[in-house]
Amino acid sequence: MLLIACPYCGPRPEIEFRCGGEAHLSRPAEPAALDDQAWAEYLFYRNNVRGVQAERWVHSHGCARWFNALRDTVSDSFLTTYLMGQPRPDPSSARN
């Protein structure tokens, strides 16, 4: 089980959280302006990174707030967690 540092509540066990998948996917401002492939890329296509991934988590059995995290998908270790709306940190400086 992972130990996840909620930016609001501190380190808590994984079973208090839900993972929301890849982060920094923004809904296109004008969906009607996209062709079908671009819309499919937004809905369904994912980087599915083997390495450092930015992803969303929600502390559903805690503060119920969403935040982002950088996690290495090979070791499962978290490099850092950060607030929604903040840019993706540089992985090399994020290790904690």
Partner: peptide
């Protein structure tokens, strides 16, 4: 597990 991973091991829970 609920998160994507290539770790080839899963959570004990």
């Amino acid at each position: 597990d609920q998160y994507t991973s290539y770790s080839q091991q899963g959570g004990l829970h």
